Amino acid sequence: MLSAYLTCGSLFLLSFILVSNAINIHSLANRWMGIFFLFAGFAMLSFVAERSPLRDQYPLLIPLLETTRFAMAPALYFSILHFTQPTTVVNRKHFLHFIPALIFILLLMGLSKYLPRQAGLLVMIGIKLQLALYWIAGFRIVLASQYRSTWLKQLMITVGVMIAVYLSSPWIGPLTNYGINSVLYLLGAGMATFLLVRQRNIQQIPVTVPRLNDKQLTSYKAKLEALMKEQAPYTDPDLTLPGLAEHLEISVHELSYLLNAGLEKNFYQYINQYRVAKAKELLSSVTHQHLSILAIGFEAGFNSKTAFNTSFKKLTGQTPGEFRKVVVRLDTNGH
């Protein structure tokens, strides 16, 4: 049980370091990671309390600690998202990830009495399945992104081992009275602390990609242009290079080469030119005059007012507001 107490302390200390931005780098990503380890600490403390006098002394302690179970996985995912894509802006769609956590809190507040007895087992399976799926999604982001960081991959592997220990605990735990589980958690917490405290800035580096011949470049260009016109994937504010590559059914490296060598643009330059064109269309449209400029930016695929204004002015020489005034004046004058 000593190792379990030490693990709790390690997780809470690591959480404090990350949330307080003591490392002074990747602040938003580290805060999300700190929230993940804080909730992991709650889960560990709940395990300790269930097997100690704390359970009887503080009957509400365990239910309170359990409220964050379904918020752990989204916190980990958002941390990885901000590590690999620092310009990501959290919007309303992202909060959908926390709906299971909200439902779980409502159940703990008293609605569980209306559920069948098997509901507890389903909740436990749901927590484990969610952790596994979100970890896989996060690890794929690390591997598929243009960002390369050995320490971040090692961190995800460390977290993955801790999750694997948790998933296998119903079978391995009882054999050793959960002693080996606690030791593995403690080692994982130590390794995570070591990696996070010594983390370095994630720099984008050139990716060695297979060259495409002229015929392939021409074919992929046509396919990409058709995709942008017919499906308008750029209107998705969460669109990434791997996501666009998946739409095209080509590798990330091939798409990167197509954009850089074939079109002489990076991913964001290419996508934002379509978003600005869409915004100009909406700003000029009579049927969209009731929409605010910010709403039009969101409609075009931008995820923040700053990104919209910056990209629009860079490509047109005007702010969206200035552009709309000119369009309205021209319509009023009839020319």
Rank of each mutant, 00 (worst) to 15 (best):
G41T: 05
H253M: 07
F95C: 01
L224S: 13
F47V: 03
A245E: 08
S52L: 05
P242G: 11
I136S: 02
Y234W: 13
I99N: 05
S304A: 14
G262M: 14
G41Q: 15
T316L: 11
D331H: 11
K128A: 09
P53Y: 12
T88K: 09
T319S: 15
V48H: 09
I99E: 01
I25M: 10
G138L: 07
G179R: 06
F308N: 02
Q231A: 14
A144T: 08
A279M: 12
T7D: 09
P53M: 10
I293R: 05
V161T: 14
L2C: 00
V327A: 07
A222Q: 15
S311I: 04
L107N: 08
L255D: 14
L155W: 12
L60F: 04
I125M: 02
S219C: 04
S169P: 02
Q269P: 04
N333T: 09
Y220K: 08
N181S: 06
Q231M: 05
E322T: 07
N181H: 05
R117K: 14
L6F: 08
Q85I: 08
L115E: 11
T319Y: 04
D56A: 14
V19N: 13
P320Q: 11
L61G: 03
I180L: 10
A222W: 02
A132H: 01
I180K: 00
F36S: 11
F83D: 00
V328G: 01
I99R: 10
M1H: 12
G190H: 07
I80D: 01
E230V: 11
V123P: 00
I136M: 13
A144V: 00
T84D: 02
R211M: 07
